[in-house]
Simulated scan of single mutants.
Amino acid sequence: MSLDPLTALYKEASGSKVTTDIYLPAAPSEQRRYPVVIDIHGGAFMLGHSGMVSLPQVNDCLSRGWIVLVPNHRLCPGVNLLDGPMQDIRDLLSWIYEGHLDEYLSSQGSWRADLENVAAFGTSSGGHLALSLGFGVPKPVKAILSLYGAVNFTDPFWKKPLPHIAAKLPPNLEESFLNKVYEEKPVPTDSSVSLEGQTESGAAKGPNFSRPRDAFAFTQISRGTVMDAVYPASQSTDPKMDLIDPARNVSGDFPPTYIVHGMADTMVPIELSRELLRRLQEAGVRCGMTEVPDEEHTFAAMMKVGSRTWWLQREGFDFLESVIGKGPV
Results as ranks from 00 to 15, higher is better:
Ala113Arg: 03
Ala120Gln: 08
Ala119His: 04
Asp102Tyr: 01
Arg90Ala: 15
Gly109Lys: 02
Leu101Glu: 04
His100Gln: 12
Asp102Ala: 04
Val118Ala: 09
Ser110Met: 05
Ala120Lys: 11
Gly99Lys: 00
Leu105Gln: 02
Trp111Met: 08
Gly99Ser: 09
Arg112Ala: 08
Trp111Tyr: 15
His100Gly: 11
Leu93Phe: 09
Gly99Trp: 00
Ala119Lys: 03
Asp91Gln: 13
Glu116Ser: 15
Val118Ile: 10
Ser106Trp: 07
Asp102Phe: 03
Ser107Leu: 03
Trp95Tyr: 10
Glu103Asn: 15
Ala119Cys: 09
Leu115Thr: 14
Leu92Lys: 03
Ser110His: 11
Asn117His: 14
Tyr97Pro: 11
Leu101Arg: 04
Leu93Thr: 05
Asn117Ala: 14
Tyr104Lys: 06
Leu115Ile: 10
Arg112Leu: 04
Asp91Phe: 03
Ser107Ile: 00
Trp95Ser: 09
Gly109Arg: 04
Trp95Val: 08
His100Met: 06
Gly109Glu: 07
Gly109Phe: 06
Arg112Asn: 06
Tyr97Met: 12
Val118Phe: 04
Ser106Asp: 13
Ser106Asn: 10
Glu98Leu: 06
Glu98Gly: 04
Trp95Thr: 05
Glu103Tyr: 06
His100Leu: 05
Ser107Thr: 01
Gln108Pro: 12
Leu105Thr: 01
Trp111Asp: 10
Leu93Gln: 06
Ala113Trp: 00
Glu103Cys: 13
Ala113Cys: 09
Tyr104Gln: 10
Glu98Ala: 05
Ser107Gly: 12
Trp95Phe: 12
Leu101Asn: 04
Leu93Pro: 11
Leu92Thr: 04
